[in-house]
Design a protein around this nucleic acid. Structure first.
Lengths: 343, 343
DNA sequence: CTGTTAGCGCCTTCAA
DNA sequence: TTGAAGGCGCTAACAG
């Protein structure tokens, strides 16, 4: 079924020993030019393809890296993955990809799977109850890069500054006079959510204000659920005049709720998206987005891993921080008196 | 760096031979219950992890499959990949993923890379100048599934019926009285594009009509490019009153152009999306979409490959066809006289 | 510079 | 039921 011709046959065909054939093929050590051409010719003639498995067996290196995210189809991840994949591909590494669906047990078994396949290293995205010790431990036996998840000083990783980013987004709304600001982001144990909520609070605190607790919604992100939640918030007298929403699905739910309530953006309500998705960019009006550069995150994650891979063994741990930027569009306007809006 | 403890040490610890240890670990052949418990205990105590590479070396099977698409970040592919990955994951296979960026040469080198890594099988998505012979040839040495690309009777694959799907979408517009219908889809050598264009023509032919040639745009999909193209089409007297657009980027370009031209959907122009993306679903108004089930495609592709993998060797080639469905939303309305619209 | 040899870790006959 | 031994295809160390 799979390729049959081995290096042994190539060697025989070329009239050299198997060792010379190997050296010629890999251009390693001392080989004569003559041997190289002979072996190369023989290899081509026989259609020789080296067996990567056997090579890995000897070299203890598979040329594969693993990447674990919670959901490949999440557009935010998808773009990041593409960037990482391109970087790995350019470096000759193959990418083993899997979704954890944010389940700790699944993450664990996938990591085991990757280890069994003897990946040379791995990149781990956020997953339910990320523990710094776990990843540090893993890093002892394998080059590992933590990707936007919690990790300690002994681990290499990349962190998106969700705290400051959300702080700035919230400031933006506060500057426009909004006080009833709703925050929709998955919370849970993930650092990403926790930091966002902290940044949200911090922005209020700066001005000696406090956010309305019931406007902070950290439930799981299902578009329909967010839709009905937002709808009910909007039906109250003290309704939110601004929304900060993470990702496509939540944003969609909120937009839908605003439309159903007959509220116009930005006249009746301002909207800020966390993460710049197609929907945010192309909605009318286009939605202001607080976001980070997904391509950079993917590329840097890959580069951090490649660096560890190159440096053979012990290398300084690195921590890269990525900050948000605010793409200001047309979805934010000054807060109006609620009376005039609800009338 | 990587795991150290081998089956040899486990055997010694358990006080049995290495052969017995292997059999106990794999529950293969005749082994005493006693041996099993002893070996299992020893393995756990030592933290033994079998070396997948060494196993692959012997068994000639890696437990890995390769998947090649043109672009992982394309939302249409991303959802499909997720479904495929889930299926493979459930079957214990690891997924090697890469983007061809629609470049034939890159596809070739990635296939070689996968082969070198000795994947057990692979799924190939559409790529520039797909040749049936090429994939048939490849299929001789390896289980292969063609995914929405051209393939012949000797190859297993899955085909989305873009012809009929686009035919129906075009009919839909024609039924509403539209005649100036614009089609935006990447064409080129890919079967997907060719079929769509054919279906478009067929719908007109059914009624003894002919589409306006200059309204068929098959250039590469860049949002900005489509935007300006659509804008120029809209500036003519004989402007299109309906648009059929493939995918998020093209759809976005057209929507933008309509907005900039001050044209309302569906009053001034109808829009149909091919492929149901977030943008189509969540735009206001929501965009009618002619689409196929991406999850099914991904799952079936994986299942077809798994079947071939299971059946060891020669198995009947299968061809699965997937049809479109029309998700009717609010972006389509009856055609109006152009005069009233352009005035 | 080249040929020979010794394994990498595991599974799988082959005897016992 | 078990132990011993061979070898998957390749690279690396050591002689020549």
């Amino acid at each position: 079924m799979t390729s049959r011709v081995t290096i042994r046959e190539v060697a025989k065909e070329a009239g050299v020993s198997i060792g010379t054939a190997s050296r010629a093929l890999n251009r390693a050590g001392r080989v004569s030019e003559k041997a190289i051409v002979a072996v190369t010719k023989a290899a081509r003639k026989l259609g020789y393809e080296p067996d990567g498995i056997a090579q890995s067996m000897r070299t203890r290196s598979t040329g594969m890296v693993g990447l674990l995210v919670s959901d490949i189809a999440n557009p935010l991840y998808a773009r990041m993955i593409t960037a990482a994949e391109a970087t790995f591909q350019a470096a000759g590494y193959a990418l083993l990809l899997a979704s954890t669906h944010n389940e700790k047990s699944r993450e664990k078994s996938l990591i085991d799977l990757f280890r069994a396949r003897r990946v040379d290293g791995m990149v781990l995205g956020p997953c339910e109850s990320e523990s710094p010790e776990f990843i540090r431990q893993l890093g002892k036996s394998l080059p590992v890069v933590a990707l936007d998840r919690e990790f300690d000083e002994q681990t290499t990783g990349i962190q998106v500054d969700h705290f400051t980013g959300t702080l700035q987004a919230t400031r933006h709304a506060l500057n426009l006079g909004h006080r009833n600001i709703a925050l929709f982001t998955p919370g849970g144990h993930l650092r990403t959510g926790v930091e966002r909520i902290a940044g949200f609070h911090a922005a209020f605190k700066e001005r000696g204000l406090t956010p309305l607790p019931h406007l902070i919604r950290t439930e799981k992100s299902s578009m329909n659920f967010v839709f009905s939640e937002a709808l009910s918030l909007l039906s109250h007298a003290e309704r939110p005049t601004a929304f900060i929403c993470l990702g496509t699905r939540i944003l969609a739910g909120v937009l839908q709720a605003l439309r159903d309530s007959g509220l116009k953006i930005p006249t009746d309500a301002s909207v800020i998206s966390i993460g710049d998705t197609d929907l945010a960019q192309l909605y009318s009006p286009p939605i202001t987005a607080a976001t980070w550069d997904l391509e950079v995150v993917g590329t840097v994650a890959a580069e951090l891993l490649l660096k560890q891979l190159d440096s053979g063994n012990k290398r300084e741990r690195e921590r890269v921080s990525i900050s948000y930027q605010l793409n200001s569009r047309e979805s934010c306007g000054p807060a109006r008196e609620l009376e005039s809006a609800t009338r």
